[in-house]
Simulated scan of single mutants.
Amino acid sequence: MAYTGHGASKMPREDRDAVALLGQVHRVDLMPAVESALAAAEAVDMSDVPLPSETAGETFRSRLAAARPDLTTEARAALADTWLFRRLWLDLPAQVENPRVQYFARFGIEDGERVPWALYRRVRDGESVVDSVLKDVGEWRADRNRVIWSSTVNPLEADIEPISARQALEFEQMVAERRYRPFST
């Protein structure tokens, strides 16, 4: 699969038309290969990666490479651009994100190090949003103070940050040990 550039607009949907035209010129049906690559891209699980983040693109490309080693670097880059565009700008859910769970942490300074000291979770199931805070190991309670909601309404004054599912799991282990430290990831 080769990246065919932008069509008349910068919307990724134009790429399908460009691939169809390229296939006609070379008398080869490229669409089955393109559809297969797009399906593989949509199946990449990114539920443990906060979006947006500086590492999301590279993480997506590496996971796609593991799933489809036959794709070129350029093809993975084009699919990553399309996937991120659909998630960040069009706000479309990924197929593997049902329900979509986001985690947030509040940080403090302990012994001169930045450590998490509170964990929040937002779960979207397509119809509703449930915000909660971790009170103890496995014990989630409603976010009555609306910390997550406040951070989305007033992001410049937010005192929580998005974290990955792996970091949330690591925080729960810290709660179980009653020993808090900076995230390892």
Rank of each mutant, 00 (worst) to 15 (best):
K10I: 04
N145A: 15
E139C: 08
L90K: 14
S47H: 02
L51P: 00
L169N: 13
D81A: 10
R27H: 13
A33T: 03
A18M: 11
A66N: 04
P93R: 11
A77V: 05
S53L: 10
L79K: 02
V115Q: 02
A33R: 00
F60R: 06
P69V: 02
W89H: 15
P52M: 05
D15P: 00
A118P: 00
I163V: 15
D48Y: 05
G112R: 08
P182K: 06
Q167T: 08
D48H: 11
P50D: 10
R76Q: 13
A78K: 04
G108I: 10
R63W: 04
Q102E: 14
K135P: 00
A65S: 10
L88N: 12
G138I: 07
V28E: 08
D15C: 04
D91V: 10
Q24V: 01
I109R: 06
V28G: 00
D45C: 07
V101G: 01
E97R: 05
A43H: 04
E58T: 07
R106E: 14
V147K: 12
L88V: 06
A78P: 00
R16D: 04
D159E: 13
G7Q: 10
T55V: 13
K135L: 15
V25H: 14
P69N: 04
T4Q: 11
R13P: 00
V101H: 01
L21D: 06
N154L: 11
R144T: 14
A20R: 11
T73F: 12
D70H: 05
E35V: 05
L134Q: 09
N154T: 08
S164Y: 01
E97C: 10
P116M: 10
V96M: 12
M1C: 07
H26Y: 12
V34R: 14
S164M: 07
D15G: 02
R87D: 07
P12Q: 05
V130W: 10
